[in-house]
């Protein structure tokens, strides 16, 4: 019962923070609020028995992600400009989609139902084997690294590729940037200049 109260309280807090994020225009405040949002959702994950997920969310969502946003804020304006008047259209789309999703909620298994389909497929096997055959108590680790090793390999490669992408975009190691340095031009938009430099030639050759 107490767990349900905590759940309700934290979820309402989460909605309040999300509404505040919509209404605030100062981006620093928005970023700090999104950090608070992550931390609150980490608390909810603990309440829902997902300790590993809570750990990750607290470290990644509230920690690293906030730091990255703040690092970017050093280069961009601190305030959001008053935006286009799209609120009505957006509100209409969101309320419509939300209503459709609410209709679908009736078909979902009720919260915490131990007999729902989710708990009948492979999870019982994971829980049974992890202790008796593998002797590893943390089932999440077993599933992550062993039963679903392919999955995690893919995720690691995604993280790796995203890191490479950031380095290519930012660290000044792109070919256009090197070319711009070589020719001595300090171009703001290296790509578009290069394209406009190359395009006329190639079209000329074709003709």
């Amino acid at each position: 019962m107490i767990s349900l109260f905590v759940d309700v309280f934290l979820l309402v807090l989460l909605v309040l923070i999300a509404v505040m994020v919509v209404r605030t225009c100062n981006l620093y405040a928005v970023i700090v609020m999104s950090g608070a949002y992550s931390l609150t959702s980490a608390a909810i994950f603990v309440n829902l028995d997902a300790v590993d997920v809570a750990f990750t969310e607290a470290a990644v969502g509230a920690g690293i992600s906030t730091i990255l946003f703040l690092a970017v804020m050093a280069y961009v304006p601190a305030d959001e400009k008053p935006s286009l008047n799209r609120n009505v259209l957006a509100g209409f789309i969101c309320i419509g989609a939300g209503a459709l999703l609410l209709l679908a909620v009736a078909d979902l298994p009720s919260f915490g139902d131990p007999m729902s389909q989710v708990h009948q497929h492979v999870a019982p096997r994971y829980l049974a084997e992890s202790g008796s055959a593998l002797h590893i108590p943390n089932v999440v680790t077993t599933v992550l690294a062993s039963y679903r090793g392919f999955d995690t390999l893919g995720e690691t490669i995604v993280v790796f590729t995203a890191g490479l992408g950031v380095l290519m975009l930012l660290a000044g190691t792109t070919r256009t940037h090197r070319m711009a340095k070589k020719t001595g031009k300090k171009t703001a938009s290296g790509v578009s200049k290069r394209v406009s430099k190359v395009l006329p030639k190639s079209t000329g050759k074709k003709v």
Binding site: L48, D49, T56, V60, Y126, L127, V143, L144, E155, V158
Partner: peptide, 15 residues
């Protein structure tokens, strides 16, 4: 509780 959604979401957070 079911460990499978935990695994999926754990990796999804980092990604």
């Amino acid at each position: 509780s079911n460990p499978l959604p935990h695994v999926l979401i754990l990796t999804a957070i980092v990604v």
